[in-house]
Design a protein around this nucleic acid. Structure first.
Lengths: 289, 289
DNA sequence: CCCGTTCCGTGAATCGTTTCAAGGTCCCTA
DNA sequence: TAGGGACCTTGAAACGATTCACGGAACGGG
């Protein structure tokens, strides 16, 4: 029988199954940027957990655009996903409520939407910022700079707040802040250039994420600055390229796969209103040691 | 009426539509590695073209595993996609034939499967290898090394063949070949280490892709080697990080978005047996100039 | 040996959308 | 005014997997 099925090339029609059952055996994962290793790792974690549960993944990318996010959410809803894991960009409580009313479990990753009642999974960024800042001060670096982006997303704001609090509590002067327009390597290079143009360099730099930190390191190395001897650089995320950068990056690791895995579990079990917070971890490599 | 639809939160049931129409308004894109910027760019090109046609994308990742590729193809077939764009890993002519028999247009990207009758889109890698090699010899570099991976995929073999042919035709000695086990930055670092351990460095290095080239550059810079003065390095792909590397990378650009766009057009129009070959382009940056 | 219970297999109804057909209405023309 | 044509509305069938109900058969116990 099974041999015959194989022989004839029969494939079950998932559309019919989904129609009959009301919703499919798929789950939607909507991330901001498919090219960012951070999101691909979260997605991998989610996928692994889903396959274990016999589910399949529908990926979508919002590219940071609320309008595209809307289109993706519409698409996923039409496809009849039974859950949605999302890093919201412009998603509001009303839309989330509608999704949940249609029986779709919504789990927010690394961001919260007040009043939506959806579950969320995040990382304690205040703690992450503290870890990064205290590591630099423990190395004896007191003249710090922060490289970030404008406008800041909530997680970035929290990291910076955590770092600032740790610094002021230790009696240090508030660091110089450089704001770029994107969380990219190119933006990091530009920030480092601006710092070098000032004439005197800080002896420690906190970057909003690893991509920027790699840009900062590249530009400084190129300018003949010794890392970490003259300037120590700390990133955030611990994406794969961090370990293989010219100067391997000291960074704050986010448990990205766990983020994806736990988000999946919440979505599959349909738990509502649960907020899971994971702890970041300092990874010391050469760029700040 | 439309206002009422909006008010009640009505969403069309795509499962029912797909069931009635026999196949949905989606197209599957199955790539090898979602974390590789090469594939994300191809995917973006495909997505842009698809959205114009009113189609949506179902992404999948095979992670280079034939077994996972099979699962993804099964999934996409069950979902009733009307076309499939794929970088085949273990997909054979028989399976492709079955897909086509089920009315699914199959387009192969950057690889061919003999006897499958599917359309394909690729880049002239022999020409790409020639461009890279001739650029190095034009710079007066004669003592070359090639950093590649073992086993080589067909595109890699073609690049290397193109480079070798250009070198022998110009009367140069065949280059030293270093084979690593993965096309990653870490593998590139390892290759550079092996080269430095040999005692005498080549004055030009051809890398199988940009990720490896970045690793090679990082390790050499770290070892105090001047690039490009002492060693010139050429990559392949022109992924985004190539431009922002410590030493911006000279590389061979593949028209990745065009690859995705053309593959989509072939899939949507259902053209069969057409093989499109695009031309690569040398991008000169600092690492070899 | 007969009756009851359980198990298996068959058949029909269902999901929401699309498509096709039939019936009805309105307008234009002869 | 009557007839015909075109257009719109309304209704029903179909897509394929699932689920439920019903009937038949087999087995076990009284």
């Amino acid at each position: 029988m099974l041999a015959a099925i194989e022989e004839l090339g029969f494939v079950r029609n998932e559309a019919a199954r989904a129609l009959r059952k009301g919703s499919g055996r798929t789950l939607g994962v909507l991330v901001e940027d498919i090219a960012n290793p951070y999101f691909t790792d979260v997605a991998r974690g989610a996928e692994a957990a889903l396959n274990e549960g016999g589910f399949d993944v529908l990926w979508c990318t919002s590219d940071g655009s609320p309008e595209k996010e809307r289109r993706c959410v519409d698409f996923l809803e039409e496809q009849g996903v039974s859950g949605l894991i999302v890093t919201p960009v412009g998603l509001d409580a009303r839309r989330i409520g509608r999704l949940r009313a249609h029986g779709i479990a919504v789990v927010l990753v690394d961001r919260k939407v007040p009043g939506a009642g959806a579950s969320s999974v995040g990382v304690d960024h205040v703690e992450g910022g503290r870890l990064a800042a205290e590591h630099l001060t423990a190395l004896g670096r007191h003249d710090l700079a922060v490289v970030t982006v404008e406008p800041e997303t909530p997680p970035l704001r929290q990291r910076r707040a955590g770092a600032l609090r740790a610094l002021t509590r230790a009696g240090h002067a508030p660091p110089l802040t450089i704001a770029e327009t994107a969380l990219t390597t190119a933006a990091g290079r530009s920030a480092a250039q601006r710092l070098m143009d000032f004439g005197t360099l800080p002896d420690g730099i906190l970057c909003a994420n690893d991509l920027m930190a790699i840009g900062v390191v590249n530009e400084l190395v190129r300018g003949g600055v010794k890392i970490p001897q003259e300037v120590a650089v700390v990133g955030y995320d611990d994406i794969a390229p961090a370990a293989t950068a010219v100067v391997p990056l000291t960074t704050v690791r986010q448990p990205r796969r766990d983020l994806g895995r736990i988000a999946t579990e919440l979505a599959l079990t349909g738990v509502e209103g649960k907020n899971v917070v994971l702890n970041p971890e300092l990874v010391v490599r050469e760029s700040a040691s």
